[in-house]
Design a protein around this nucleic acid. Structure first.
Length: 566
RNA sequence: GCGCCCAUAGCUCAAUUGGAUAGAGCAACGGUCUACGGAACCGUCGGUUGCAGGUUCGAGUCCUGCUGGGCGCGCCA
């Protein structure tokens, strides 16, 4: 049992099998998660509700179990254990525990010899590579137009989740699936062709449901500038193919640029079109599904029996006209992911793709992948408001706000922080006026300001020639103020939060814990001085370094800029 | 019609997956600087967690039924 608390910092404390005495006198192994949460003010550093969980299994009152556990806890890292009604266990960490925290944050000793105070290492928050390959696929907007704010939300979720998984030891690949095949691309090309032909003086019919945005005209003009009317002379199918190719290239270039400006990076772009033709991926998938026994032919089409996996209807793989469906293409794509050796694929989709989740999960299972191979994060719609009215967004009507426009108006950091701070499954109301106002109320300025303050202490300390030679020579018992302990608790809690994010993908918690840490730092800052050249100087410098390292790490995860002078 | 998501302080959002007195920011009101950055800090005000039942030591969280908003329900992507 004492093993349980032997390293309160290690994320592995999250769940362990433990031996419990039973009424009959024997013992049995029970595996349950040990939730360690920050205790409320005045209840120690951490709390656990494990007595309640055990009470159900052992049929004994929680208070009694808490007592038994308390007597068995013997760890140099635990200063004291208190029991609170009706059965909480409240743990207070020892100075030795704090010392080890600082030691881990200091990292390599030689870093400190030259007294570069920012040599504290964020490695404390990172886990060694666990050998698992995970793929996160996000944005994946059709290259039929610039990406809009909704894509931006998906972008930030995928980007930051990838960062967190990477820090937790996974090998992460960030991928953009380019839907450059199918009827939408055709529609896109015909919309451009209409404007191109018009430039050439050729009468064409605007396609029904075609794309009407100004960017379509702009693409047509660029094509005209480059080729004059030479394309109008080609045979019709060739013209369309050429226009589609040119339009696609321009659009992808545009999208890549927007994402770069937004600070969202990808390791690879996977083209849907590569599944067709030479690669044979489509044919191979058809064979896999046929061999699986989950297909049948009806009404001239090939069907997949997705109802066998909880879908409410079966899905067509090959249309009666012989063309593969989008679902088949996406299935082939996920088979490709599986073959690339990922242990998990995480897809980040907008709510408009919600209907595709169950069929897609069915398809992966039908193709022989484990049920938990694919996780889909659905994020809800982003609504933009300007002057109290909702800004309607539609690629087809061309009335939409692009991500570029938003970033230009409110800044990259603010846009990222705003998108990130709300859980994926609730709607996001984005007030353009508020965001545009560059108001100082914006929480992103608050956390950046906190960061700047801390670096200023370090710099000032350097100017004053204050020497810090490592935690071993520091009396940590002097960090006894509530404000200081609150900071330490917030730092310690980061790892627990990262674990929970890597399990349930709740990236929206990052801005919250960053804000919380910042508030605690500012409370401390306001009340106590660091550079007074007294016995508190070194312990507090250690605390400042630890705080700065933690903030810096969180900023990196969220892709927020670290500013030393604002 | 069916399926899923959402509803929490005046506003924007949390609540560590069933745990302690439901918390932050903004707004409002009142305080705090001879100091390492006042873009700060401290305090006050603010709640029948949409409504009605149920489950248990314990419910914002789970189950049932409502109300309101959103998304989805193609041989579109």
């Amino acid at each position: 049992m004492d093993l349980l608390f032997c390293n309160p910092y290690s994320s592995s404390v999250g769940s362990k099998g433990i031996n419990l005495p039973t009424k009959s006198g024997g013992s049995r192994e029970i595996n349950l998660s040990v939730d360690i949460v920050p205790a409320p003010e005045g209840f120690g550093d951490f709390a656990t509700i494990i007595p309640f969980k055990l009470a159900k299994i052992l049929h004994k009152p929680p208070l009694l179990i808490a007592e038994e556990i308390k007597n068995k806890i013997a760890s140099p890292y635990i200063e004291s254990v208190a029991i609170a009604k009706p059965g909480y266990l409240n743990l207070t960490l020892s100075l030795q525990a704090l010392r080890e925290l600082f030691k881990e944050l200091e990292g390599k000793k030689e870093n400190l010899l030259s007294w570069n105070p920012r040599s504290f290492s964020a490695d404390y928050f990172k886990e060694p590579k666990n050998g698992k390959k995970v793929q996160v696929e996000f944005v994946s907007a059709n290259p039929t137009g610039p990406i809009h704010v909704g894509n931006g939300r998906g972008g930030i979720i995928g980007d930051v989740l990838s960062n967190v998984l990477d820090a937790r030891g996974y090998t992460v690949e960030r991928e953009y699936y380019v839907n450059d095949a199918g009827s939408k691309m055709d529609l896109f090309a015909r919309s451009i062709r209409y404007y191109y032909f018009r430039k050439c003086g050729v009468q064409d019919e605007f396609p029904e449901e075609g794309y009407k945005g100004k960017y379509i005209e702009a693409i047509a003009e660029k094509i005209f500038d480059k080729f004059q009317d030479s394309l109008a002379k080609l045979e019709s199918p060739d013209v369309l193919a050429k226009i589609m190719q040119l339009g696609k290239e321009m659009m992808i270039e545009n999208i890549k640029h927007s994402l770069e400006v937004f600070g969202v990076h990808f390791d690879s772009f996977f083209y849907e079109s590569s599944l067709y033709g030479g690669s044979g991926a489509i044919n191979k998938s058809i064979q896999i599904f046929k061999n699986s026994g989950y297909t049948y032919e009806a009404e001239g089409a090939l069907w997949f029996r997705s109802t066998a996996f909880g879908d409410d209807k079966d899905r067509v793989l090959i249309r009666s006209n012989g063309e593969p469906t989008y679902a088949l293409g996406d299935a082939a794509y996920h088979i490709n992911k599986w073959e690339r050796g990922f242990s998990k694929a995480i897809d980040v989709w907008g709510a408009d793709h919600f209907g595709h989740v169950v069929p897609m999960k069915a398809l992966t299972q039908g193709a022989g992948m484990p049920k938990d191979f694919l996780d889909v994060i659905i994020y809800q719609v982003v609504h933009l408001y300007e002057n109290g009215n909702e800004v309607m967004m539609s690629k087809h009507t061309g009335t939409f706000v692009t991500l570029d426009e938003l970033v230009q108006e409110v800044g990259r950091d603010a846009a990222r922080f705003f998108f990130l701070g709300k859980s994926a499954d609730t709607h996001l109301n984005f007030d353009m006026n508020l965001a545009k106002s560059q108001s100082m109320d914006n929480p992103v300025y608050y956390v950046q300001y906190t960061y700047a303050r801390l670096t200023n202490i370090i710099n000032e300390g350097l100017l004053r020639g204050i020497k810090y030679t490592g935690i071993d020579s520091v009396d940590l018992s002097l960090l006894d103020k509530n404000e200081e302990k609150n900071i330490l608790r917030a730092i310690l809690y980061v790892n627990e939060e990262l674990d929970s994010i890597s399990k349930d993908y709740s990236v929206h918690m990052l801005p919250f814990i960053t804000l919380e840490l910042s508030q605690k730092i500012n409370s401390f800052y306001q009340k106590y001085r660091v550079l007074m050249a007294d016995e508190y100087t070194l312990p507090r410098l250690a605390l400042v370094n630890a705080s700065l390292t933690t903030l810096s790490f969180l900023f990196d995860l969220m892709g927020i800029e670290k500013i030393e002078k604002m």
